[in-house]
Write a protein that binds this DNA or RNA. Structure first.
Lengths: 216, 216
DNA sequence: AGCTGTGAACCGATTCACAGCT
DNA sequence: AGCTGTGAATCGGTTCACAGCT
């Protein structure tokens, strides 16, 4: 399939075709009227815009189960991410191979960051260590942090933090689950006629999240 | 601190106080005019509304690094989640203790689900196994699924799926990182005067995500 | 004839602003 | 005097609808 229309893409993604066209238009005019979008060209343009064509060296700090899972996660490489180093505070971990890469000790954190030109750090430590690790990462030059520890991090302006709370996703499911149990009737009109379907499964779906205000 | 005003909460959460009051008002009138919200009462009401006061038995299928990390994750218990069982397809894993609980074999999946009254399942298997596991979970009565496998699952209507893609969060950071490098000037007005601050670190922050349309 | 790109209309969600309660 | 709860105004993002290109 060398070419694709906004209508087809919209159907596949479960969104309105006008929205899709408008969004694409912000990246430039990459479509051809009467024809559609050239798939290969479009993929390249989107990849470039999202930074997928760049090489992003990343360090993972805290090589417990979660850190190891992240190190082994296959999805990173295909998105332009390269795990440059695994760092852990436990001396017993140092040198141990995880995902085919030796774990390094926290003592060398600063050197690792600067040697590899790392600007993105992943924190998978216990909550208690997170802020301290964060401070060192930032001091060493990291400007984006992905935080899996259950703490809100304080960072200087200019540094981005994203917090991933695994239990929040479960909580959102439980919230809907609770609703299902409550109103066995309101949903019926919707749920009535229809076999297996693939809805938008990503967060921020059209059916709404838990109110944004609720604090963690 | 027995009582708190919408203004204080809003400042802490980084949102507008009117929004916070309006959101709370959907749960009922739990504040006192001239005083604020009674903290303990408010916490209870929100907990109840979100389903935190209920007990949610959950099964985790696929006990690799990620599954083990989830099993060990402390945050679940405090939100009302109880890991009822760990399930893996590898016979060698069966019986092994993970997070103080023996791993059970996939053969018993249906029995485990019904014995424990599980309605929420977590899939942490490789991509190839995910849909099959999903089908069995749904057939056994699970109506909410948290999917960590890099596949979009197809489910019957009435079943909720949330997909967590760990690389997407990194991608969002890389996207902003790229911007920082590009326009060293536009951000300056914002970044200029200010020491360490704690911004809203959760997804859907005020500074926007990557356009929702972008397909995975 | 077909499909993009986009101004204009629309709509839901946020914010303002204040009446009303304590 | 102080703060909630909420109508009304506002805002930003989505959708409509069509001019314009191929």
């Amino acid at each position: 399939m060398p070419t694709v229309s906004s209508e087809e893409l919209a159907a596949a993604a479960g969104v309105n075709s006008a929205k899709l066209r408008k969004d694409f238009s912000y990246l430039g005019s990459y479509g051809t009227r009467g024809v559609g979008y050239d798939v290969e060209y479009l993929v390249y343009q989107i990849s470039r815009e999202l930074g997928l064509t760049q090489d992003w060296p990343v360090v993972i700090v805290g090589i417990g189960n979660l850190g190891a899972a992240l190190a082994n996660y296959g999805g990173f490489a295909s998105r332009g991410f390269r795990v440059a180093a695994l760092i852990d505070a436990d001396p017993a971990m140092a040198g141990k191979p995880v995902a085919g890469m030796p774990v390094q000790h926290t003592d060398d954190l600063e050197k690792i960051i600067s040697d590899n030109g790392v600007s993105i750090g992943v924190i998978a430590t216990p909550a208690g260590a997170a802020q301290q690790v964060c401070d060192r990462l930032v001091a060493a030059g990291v400007t984006s942090i992905l935080n899996f520890a259950p703490t809100v991090l304080t960072v200087p302006d200019g540094v981005d933090v994203r917090k991933v709370d695994l239990s929040i996703e479960l909580q959102i499911l439980a919230f809907h689950e609770q609703r299902k149990a409550g109103e066995e009737s309101a949903a019926d009109a919707d749920a009535a006629a229809g076999p297996a379907v693939t809805k938008n499964q990503h967060r921020k779906g059209p059916d709404g999240d838990v109110p944004a205000v609720m604090p963690a």
